[in-house]
Computed example of a mutant assay.
Amino acid sequence: MTQDVVVGMESCAITVLKRAVELDTSARFQESLVCYQEGIQLLLDVLKAVKDDSKKAHYRGKIKGYMERAEQIKVHLQQAKEEGKYHEQIKITENATGYSYEKLFKPYITEALTEVCVEDPYIRHIHQLYNFLRFCEMLLKAPCKVKKINLLTSRDEGESNSLQATVLHEITQSLQSHGVALDTQFSSTIHDREIRFNNGWIIKIGRGLDYFKKPQGKYSIGYCDYDLRPCQETTVDVFHTKHTKTA
């Protein structure tokens, strides 16, 4: 492994761990834990590559410190879930970037996740249907074995009604070819927006899946990569089911 590669890995580790500390300081513990784990793995890769003993000692010390903090957060999160006190809030500011579905939902996706429920009244127009498709693609790429997705939305009564039906049917067929069943139900009274994972997590987004701004054009930056697409201001509230047992 060349020195340039080692320097590049170290730079990535520093960036990820800096983000972990920022999230930790903001009490966004679940997200910070994911970043700590990613950063620690990068530092372990650097440790394997360096030959200098003093540098090895330096990296071992850093890794030890970050691992201790990650373990403290893990214990804190588990205790909060068991006591039914877990609640994390993420505020997405106007024009903020870096909030693709992968980034937003990754901290709450585990191998135990097999079923997802999406309640969102606005999966009707073409860009909203594309958002839902992107969300489904994210689940298929994630380290879990999702077998069923339940969608509760409102029926488009306007000119786009046939488009909504056609697109949802196509998504259903496509998911089926990947071993995932999509069950779509319609409600004329649905208002709230939330996503429930059967591993215990509930994510409520003020704007539902439609929190991205319209791209300037089909060939503008952010059209394909949602991490680069500016967001509309919204709030994300994350709970664990034990927090809602009395409901």
Rank of each mutant, 00 (worst) to 15 (best):
E111C: 02
L133Y: 14
G61A: 03
L47Q: 09
P107N: 10
A80L: 14
I126F: 09
T110P: 08
C144D: 01
Y99E: 01
D120K: 04
H76I: 11
M138D: 01
A142G: 02
H87Y: 11
I123F: 00
E119M: 15
Q89S: 12
N95L: 14
G61N: 06
C136L: 03
Y108K: 05
I126V: 13
R69K: 15
A96S: 13
G61C: 00
Y66G: 08
T110E: 02
A70D: 06
E83K: 15
T114G: 00
K103L: 10
K48T: 04
M138N: 05
L140I: 05
F105Q: 05
D120G: 04
T97V: 15
L139I: 01
R124Y: 01
H127T: 13
T97M: 13
K74S: 14
Y66W: 13
N131K: 06
F105R: 03
Q41M: 12
K62R: 15
E88I: 07
D52A: 07
D52Q: 07
R60H: 08
A112K: 10
I63V: 11
E71W: 09
A142N: 03
I109E: 06
I92Y: 06
Y101V: 01
C136A: 10
A57S: 15
E102S: 13
I92L: 14
P143E: 07
I109L: 12
Q37L: 12
L44K: 15
G98I: 07
K106M: 13
Q89M: 12
K91W: 12
G61Y: 02
Q72F: 11
Y59D: 03
I109K: 04
D52V: 02
G65Q: 10
D53G: 06
H87D: 07
Y108V: 06
K106V: 08
Y108Q: 06
K106S: 15
Q78C: 11
H87L: 15
